[in-house]
Structure formats: structure tokens, C-alpha cells
Amino acid sequence: MSHSSQLALLRSMLRIRRIEEAIADRYAEQEMRCPMHLCIGQEAIAVGVCAALSKGDSVFSNHRAHGHYLAKGGSLNAMVAELYGRSTGCCGGRGGSMHLIDLDAGFSGSTPIVGGTVPLAVGAAWASSLKQSEQVTVVFFGDGCFEEGVVHESMNFAKLHKLPVVFVCENNNFSVYTRLNERQPERPLYRVAEAHGLAAYTGNGNDVEEVLAISRKAVGLARQGQGPQFIELHAYRWREHCGPNFDDELNYRTAQEIKAGIHDCPIASYTRKLEKENGNIHLEIERCEAEIQREIAAAFEFALSSKKPSIDDSQGKVYA
């Protein structure tokens, strides 16, 4: 991989991280008044998977969608404005953090009902298959979602009709505060997908190049008509399930575990790797940081100076 491609991956992860941190920093001002599920610590999955897609491909996501939306090219201004409930938000303020959309970027929608968008992605893939288009559809969901019946219904149909869809399961081991071992028997998730007949892969969700390599293979096979693909990626959620804070004081995970999780930071480890391979990239990172901070400042300014919707804006568009 070229140095510039590597830097682009690093930059994309860094950008998501800094945006999420900026949201967390300002959340206490209580101007962003909607539930917020930050993806800090899980950036490599969003970036690695979306780097394997082309613009015309479609992505569906879930409640923790900021990273997926941004990695697929969703408008930052429209996202931040949406968090602030402004008219210029991607849903005009009707959705908030848990409902993002940017059709121009191929981000088809995210919703918080666990499993809600998984069949939609299969339906989108069904449509592209029936229309014989080149499009591949990706859906991001978590290990908790894997427990929803609708996910297995979706995999069954996707395999039956050999649809060009890639299921990406982000396994962060937690559903809110409940560990995987309290919810599922001990067996690798991807093997269950394999039992549905899907080509299934597993990998380190903290290694962006590994994520990208697996995704390229899966997306390529899906595009060639080889049917649905399933990728299970392990990652760690640093902060609370919902909200801007760390939640170490709840003691549902040990200090040691949190420390280990943070130690595996996808950005820090990738920075180390690039430095080892290419020497000092300090200046490049500094330049990225500065650009990102300028972009973030502009996005917040855009949001805060945008029109506030009126009560009238809450009506209409109930029916098309």
C-alpha cells in the first residue's frame, strides 16, 4: 500500500476520533439534545470497510453511526447540524444522532432499533441484483444485533438469492453493559454466519489495514456475484454505551480491561506502524490535525449559525 493511501486511512480515523471528541467536549453544554453513541476506539472498522467501497455502494448503519457516516463520505456539516437539531441537519432535525442519512455519499440511513436496518440492506442488495447493477451494500451492526432473529432471516434470504451484501459485525463484547457471555453461548459469531452458508471472515478490528484487506476481498466477491459475505471484527468501546463520558466508575469492566482496550487504540497502533515503516510522520500528522480542527470548528460554527426549525417544520412529509 502506498504511503499516501496509508496516510489517508490514518487521517480518516483521526478525523472521526477528533469529531467524536469535539462532540463529547461540547455535549455538557446541552445544546446537542439527543442520545449520542460515540464510536471512539472503533474507528478502524468504519474506515477500513468504507475504504473498500466505491461511491455508488450503499451503507446502512445503526445507533453508533457517526464513524460509518463520515467514513462513507457523509457531510460533516449536515451531521453536526443534525446533532444540534437545526434545519440544515441531514434530517432537518427530525432524526438526531441515531438517524443519519446522506444519499449523495451512498449512506442510506441509520436507525437505533437493533437489527432494524439489516434487512433493509439485504433489500437494497436484492434490488441491485434484480436491476443487475454493480452496487454492493454494506450493513454495520454489533454483537448484540447478532441475537436478533431478523438478522438470521436476512442472512438466509441473502444466501438464498446470492445477494451482493456484506454484513459487518462489530464485536465490542458489550450490549450496553452486558457481556457477550451472558447473552450468547461460547462460539465464534462468524461461524454461525458460515452455517447460514455465507462466506465469513474474522479479524482484528483495531488493525485498519487488516480490516481493509478483508473488506476488499469480501466486497470484491460480493460484486462478482459470489453472494453475501460476513465479517466479524473485534474492537473495544472506550466510553459509555450512550453519552460522552468514560464510565469506569460503574465497575462493569475492570480498570485493567479498559486499559488494555485503550492500549489497542487503532490510531496509535497504526501511527506506530507507519513510523516504523516510513520514519517520522510527525509533521504529516500535525498538518492533518490542524486541517481537521479547522474543519470541525467550521462545522460547529455552521451548525450553531443554522436556522432553528419551527413547530411548523415538525409537520408535513408524513406521506410522500
Binding site: 446502512f60 442510506s108 434487512p119 433493509l120 433489500g123 437494497a124 436484492w126 434490488a127
Partner: peptide
């Protein structure tokens, strides 16, 4: 859901 996705 699959029909909704196809409709979208």
C-alpha cells in the same frame, strides 16, 4: 424489511 430496502 427486505421489501422496504428494495422499495427504498
Amino acid at each position: 424489511g427486505i421489501c422496504i430496502g428494495a422499495a427504498l
